[in-house]
Design a protein around this nucleic acid. Structure first.
Lengths: 202, 202
DNA sequence: GCGCTTCGCTACAGTCACTGTAGTCACCTC
DNA sequence: GAGGTGACTACAGTGACTGTAGCGAAGCGC
């Protein structure tokens, strides 16, 4: 996995992602063309599309990887006695998760600001959220058993977890507080109350 | 508001929306070009863009109107003693809400099927969801008072309400049950438990 | 009725995201 | 070291979306 070719591929991918984020921040998303990004990375436009399916995807080069990591980590606890506890632990762990791509906090801030301003990036991010939601629902159905009630509550939990995180981040955008602690309290309340007991109306 | 010009404009808009939905259903979203839609409606491509900002928007010609209706209805209860009750009533009322555009249930089914299959339409729908979420959050902050805790819980409620509805609809896609009753129970649980009391960790 | 404005639509031309195809050349494998 | 694979290029095309200018009919004050 670390031969010449893979290194070259990764180098190009990084150059493209870095150029994209930098240019988006400097001149704005719409004012940046894919030709600009490719030229800045020293490759052709066609090469850009060998690495990213869309312009927006270049702003989040590690999304696929992060979702995959989350799914793996969630799956590792499939046999746990307390599936909800394991889910919450995994989510909490995700907060600390940073990797090679988004390490620099300046990059993270840039990305967050762009996300709020550019609808196309918001769409891209929302697609990733849906992947997380599906992963959570699948995990809980496996843990709870495949009844209609379980499938329904699992889907709601997936939405609730991601929704709580997203809403918390939105407010956090203009007010400082401990994101991890607050979202954890909200999620634990949700599970303590409305989400862990069968529905009456089903 | 019912002069010759407005009637003509509405007629064209309807023709475009009908042609779009029909062609999307017949040959698929990607296989339908905007020229096709415009030609089927008897106008030019440029006219299409006088009525809809994007190709996807033509599949939901009344989204703006629906959001505006929701906001109006929500605002009408601004002085109510029980804001959460008013919100739930408004949401429940939304279920029954059908209008001139989406009256025919066959159209509604077609639209729902397309929504599940076409990512671009999913994105479009998600943007509308965000409008609802913002409307709910704004309403609740006005009712609860503008503290950090209220802003946070209001944002979470907006996400939770829309999330519950979306998750319920997804599961409902392959299992029949009373959507309105089930989502109402879920929402009432959320408000009874985790969402109506100040956060400890703030 | 009669100008004057407004506006729904057309015609035309351009940009840019994205795709298909074919080819080159370095690297990897056996 | 021969053959295959894969990263990248070159070129050409499609289709979503935009800007601008103009036509002709509906509205509106006189």
């Amino acid at each position: 996995m670390a031969n010449q070719r893979d290194r070259q591929r990764l180098r190009t991918r990084r150059a493209l992602a870095d150029s994209a984020l930098r240019l988006f921040a400097e001149r704005g998303y719409d004012a940046t063309t894919i030709d600009d990004i490719a030229a800045a990375a020293g490759v052709t436009q066609r090469t850009f599309f060998h690495h990213f399916p869309t312009k927006a995807a270049a702003a989040f080069p590690d999304h696929e990887q992060r979702v995959a990591d989350f799914v793996t980590r969630l799956g590792d606890g499939a046999q746990q006695a307390d599936p909800v506890g394991h889910l919450l632990d995994t989510v909490a762990h995700g907060w600390k998760g940073s990797n090679e791509w988004s390490d620099a906090s300046s990059m993270r801030r840039t990305r967050y600001r762009l996300l709020a301003e550019v609808p196309a990036l918001h769409d891209e991010d929302a697609r990733t959220d849906r992947d997380y939601e599906r992963a959570i629902a699948t995990y809980l159905v496996a843990a709870w058993g495949d009844t209609l009630d379980a499938r329904l509550r699992a889907a709601v939990v997936g939405n609730a977890v991601i929704g709580v995180l997203r809403a918390t981040l939105v407010v956090w955008g203009d007010a400082e507080f401990e994101v991890a602690a607050v979202s954890d309290e909200l999620l634990r309340r949700m599970f303590a109350g409305p989400l862990s007991h069968p529905l009456q109306t089903l």
